[in-house]
Nucleic acid binder design. Structure first.
Lengths: 334, 334
DNA sequence: TCCTACGATTAAAACGTATCAATCACAATC
DNA sequence: GATTGTGATTGATACGTTTTAATCGTAGGA
């Protein structure tokens, strides 16, 4: 009834538990017929290995932790898809943690990862406190930063150049004849927001404009709801810029909805550009211009780096990879 | 160095390992000052409990498995948000498995869950094979069906009435004067698709029409991409109905894009309604009519049932909960 | 025939925690 | 002063696996 262990399998196959373990972990070490007998016993008894016992004895598990800022954002589900594909190819399970941008929840997720003795952690940190991650590394848990450049060498990181992306977006807006520009950002602690704003300012400067001209609006979240609130605020202030750059597409879609509801025409009255090029950007009321990132690849590459670090700790060389974004022009900036 | 165990904590606090374990699991059983001493030692040493050892000894873990059909679908991320909130409130971690509609991947995820000895499993099954789930139950793993009615009593299930929902959608289309109706569904194995179609047929019958009139198109996936392909197929066949009901919003958004690209006007030439009322439905080019489900609540309630079953196995009474959907009318059916 | 070598298998010892019966200290009761 | 009771703590054991050294059996070389 209860649970069938390696011993039961051994008994039925007429071998010792050690041999069963070998069949499970180093099948090449055991003779053909014994192996067949053991495999038959496993099947007959419906044995499934006790992962915890295995982890306990082996000192490490076959799981990795993935901590993201907002699983409701298609950007992160795409990343997660890439992560999961690579992980399951290599026999790893993924524990998903959603920080929702809350430092406390992120902390709790990392604690869970540590308790589960995950082999490694993939994280898009929600702030710049690298010390927590170092504490994980001290525990022997590899950490790879996702969508975040390395603060220093000695770690792997996979990111997309957000400064360039921000600059692309804003010089596109300027090229379209925009004069008064606004930036709708997210929480100040989120690096992506800062970098994209910096890129925006650089583009302004490059066009001979004062970077201080950029009207900035920082929302507490990067969701469609927050975007709609941003639009309402902009409308209430009677200071509507003629071009808006949003830190991500969810914000932009929310802004778009808010503007259209108020009778503001996009792009005639206001040009609008988002960031991430999520699937829905091209399907919106007015299709949304955006900055595309190699999202799925980000997840894949990060996971490959992490598992390489886990599986070949001696030969592994840390890498910091930086992809470049692409501008995607659609109706909202024409 | 490596890892600090309960013994190290015990030594530093001058107590036995058993006491440390008590501090961790039944703090009320241990005297105030000893507890304080132990907690200090835990903090000083940076001890974190070894989840695997704990699971091994206790015979059960503090994790649950969540298996969904498509994590790229906002419907499921909403469900997952509800699950995660309840789980973390009660100190459980969630292992997420994405079956992508593939039976094989679902199977593999369930195997991972079994190996990890999760306490229970929440699953939106991708087909009707309940035997696999019974095998989990034999192992002492509770299973709650999510967005799927129970096939029999003796299990918990939380669902939304898809037949009603399908009927709502189609009678709305009929009420708008639709004549030739089409249904864009997903894989035949997915129950939601069947039920929504059945509801559609019932609505036709109720209106005195032949249910066989429903033009049916079954796509291999329920994604926006598949929806766009569906639109292309409908256009190529020159048999475009004047009203389309799609099995979910992603399909509908894809269909919408496909139709608009071909110059078909929505809703003038073709009325269109989706299902789920995801956030993006209201933001699309032509805002999408849909059938709303209490998604987040679905996740919450399912998790509460599961954890009740896990934590109070003796007093727990299985429940089959069925929510009702709501019709949301927008531009695409006006 | 004896010895060596080698491949296949085994026996036993961990891994870090939870649990439970046993022990202890000490106060309350007779 | 002996007994009982109570609350706090301890010691020992078991959970299911992996791993290492040891053992076994057999074949090949001398």
């Amino acid at each position: 009834m209860g649970t069938v262990s390696i011993k039961d399998v051994a008994a039925r196959a007429g071998v010792s538990p050690g041999t069963v373990s070998n069949v499970l972990n180093r099948p090449e070490k055991v003779a053909g017929d014994t192996r067949a007998r053991v495999e038959a016993a496993i099947r007959d008894l419906g044995f499934v290995r006790h992962g915890s016992a295995s982890t306990l004895r082996a000192g490490h598990s076959r799981t990795i932790g993935l901590s993201v800022i907002d699983i409701g954002n298609p950007f992160f589900t795409d990343v997660a898809a890439g992560v999961e594909d690579v992980a399951s190819e290599r026999g790893y399970a993924v524990i998903l943690g959603n920080s929702s941008g809350s430092r406390m929840k992120e902390e709790r997720n990392l604690l869970v990862f540590a308790e589960q003795r995950v082999r490694g952690v993939l994280i898009t940190p929600s702030d710049e406190d690298g010390a927590r991650l170092d504490r994980l590394r001290e525990r022997g848990i590899s950490v790879v930063l996702v969508d975040h450049p390395a603060e220093r060498s000695g770690q792997c990181a996979v990111a997309v150049n957000d400064v360039t992306g921000g600059a692309m977006a804003v010089s596109h807006l300027l090229g379209g004849g925009a004069d008064r520009l606004g930036y709708v950002g997210g929480p100040a602690a989120i690096r992506q927001c800062q970098d994209r704003r910096r890129g925006a300012e650089q583009a302004l400067a490059a066009a001979g404009r004062d970077p201080g001209d950029l009207l900035e609006l920082a929302m507490p979240a990067m969701t469609a709801r927050a975007g709609q609130q941003a639009a309402e605020k902009l409308l209430a202030d009677r200071s509507l810029p003629d071009a808006l750059f949003c830190a991500n597409d969810l914000l932009a879609l929310g802004v778009l909805r808010g503007l259209l509801q108020a009778g503001v025409r996009v792009p005639d009255d206001v040009s609008l550009i988002g960031y991430d090029d999520i699937d829905f950007a091209s399907a919106s009321t007015v299709s949304l211009s955006s900055v595309r990132q190699p999202t799925y690849k980000l997840g894949r590459v990060a996971t490959e780096l992490l598992l390489d670090e886990c599986d070949n700790p001696d030969t592994h060389a840390h890498q910091q990879i930086m992809f470049q974004p692409d501008l995607v022009v659609r109706e909202s900036t024409r």
